[in-house]
Design a protein around this nucleic acid. Structure first.
Length: 371
RNA sequence: GCGGCUAUCGUCAAGAGGUUAAGACACAGGAUUGUGGCUCCUGCAUUCGAGGGUUCGAAUCCCUUUAGCCGCC
């Protein structure tokens, strides 16, 4: 269980292709993981997710604990049954909410006191309670409860935060009782290279089935983020999956994989889809643009997803302008298909030691901006 | 034919003599990275139905005219 087979490493870039075994199937890496925070990928059914080749979904401990409550999900037979998804699931621990709900929480050594964004009530989350909730949810991969610190944090802020996250990781491991769930540790350290290395070494000293890099894509530039990935590579065990948390523009995705990342998740594709933006083989397209009013060609002529197969840009623009729910559905299906397809292309390219070609294509043929 | 009322951005509408004519929606650009939030940011009337006048100064006052609505013959 939770064996990671490293199948091939691109001899030019170091990009990795592998297989991660979970109780709900094998995840072929590199992989993009759609995010379904509240046990649902916004605007996308599990049938659609399956059709587009999704291998693993993300969901969220903090949000599901508030609503409907993890006991409800436990009594439903776990998250897989509750949301009708029989492939792998990964739950984030609530650590990101320490960042995103900054105004609504207080951090202590023991844990974090949140004020519910729903009704204002006090919710205390600790490494132990996060693990307890995640055991109730029953995902295949569960994340350590950490603090995701803002990228612009000072060294004085990052040092104690990072050390606390390490102590919390020990407590998470201690609290864990189920052996059919893989606990991943999370490396922090802000944008300070020595702290990142320190965090990587100490985190990886704790034997776990996988390791994540957190605290990135939270306000820093792409160059800064990639620099951190570059220096971290040598400190990560080769025989464990490497998960870069919260990253999902096509550029970041490709650059991450070329730096040895195996797994990434992001709300980006589904969020921008709801706001009328598409990732395509010809760059980013805003379906809102006036120029598409009468354009009967597909969103992406090189895409075979249901959205591109069956509908025109003029129709998609009309749906968006009309506020139709179908707009969110089709655009989300497309964007997720694009990233999942990109991951599949990369995996194939890695086996041929040609992953660099995908990067070149991204910046030339596809026309994505380098920074 | 006579009397009254109304006429400000694509739409709804503030404004009642004094610097660049509110706001909302719509429209047009842009943002968005381990998802509180179909959200956020930016732009969008040198012009107030038309023409003339009073005044240092008018969307705001006066006259003429046009259109719509309401009454009366």
């Amino acid at each position: 269980m939770f064996k990671f087979e490293l199948e091939h490493v691109d001899k030019y870039t170091g990009a990795r292709a592998g297989k991660f075994h979970t109780p709900h199937g094998i995840i072929e890496t590199p992989v993009f993981m759609p995010v379904g925070t509240q046990a649902a990928v916004k605007a996308v059914s599990t049938d659609s997710l399956k059709d587009m080749g999704t291998q693993v979904l993300l969901s969220n401990t903090y949000h599901l604990n508030l609503r409907p409550g993890s006991e409800i999900i436990k009594s439903a037979g776990g998250l897989h049954k509750f949301m009708n998804w029989d492939k792998a699931i990964l739950t984030d621990s609530g650590g990101f909410q320490v960042f995103s709900l900054k105004g609504l929480r207080k951090i202590r050594e023991e844990g974090v006191e949140f004020q519910s964004h729903l009704d204002g009530s006090k919710i205390f989350m600790s490494p132990e309670s996060s693990i307890q909730i995640q055991e109730n949810l029953g995902a295949d991969i569960i994340m350590a409860f950490d603090e995701c610190a803002p990228a612009l944090s000072s060294r004085d802020y990052i040092v104690p935060s990072m050390e606390r996250t390490l102590r919390w990781l020990e407590r998470c491991k201690e609290a864990k009782t189920r052996d059919d769930q893989a606990l991943f540790g999370i490396i922090q350290g802000g944008l300070f290279k020595d702290l990142r290395i320190q965090s990587a070494i100490k985190t990886c000293q704790i034997d776990l089935p996988g390791y994540a890099i957190g605290g990135l894509s939270v306000g820093e530039t792409r160059e800064e983020m990639l620099e951190i990935l570059d220096i971290l590579g040598p400190y990560l065990p080769k025989d464990k999956p490497r998960y870069l948390m919260g990253v999902g523009t096509p550029q970041d995705f490709v650059e991450g994989i070329l730096r040895g990342i195996d797994m990434m998740d992001c709300v980006h594709p589904t969020r921008i889809a709801r706001h009328g933006l598409a990732m395509t083989s010809r760059g980013m397209i805003s379906i809102k643009r006036q120029e598409f009013t009468a354009d009967l060609s597909p969103l992406d002529p090189n895409c075979s997803c249901p959205c591109c197969r069956d509908y025109s840009k003029a129709y998609l623009r009309h749906l968006y302008k009309s506020g139709e729910i179908l707009s969110s559905m089709l655009m989300s299906i497309h964007n997720l298909s694009f990233l999942i397809g990109l991951a599949q292309d990369l995996r194939q390219a890695i086996f041929n030691d040609e992953s660099e070609n995908i990067r070149k294509k991204l910046y030339t043929v596809m026309g994505y901006a380098k920074s």
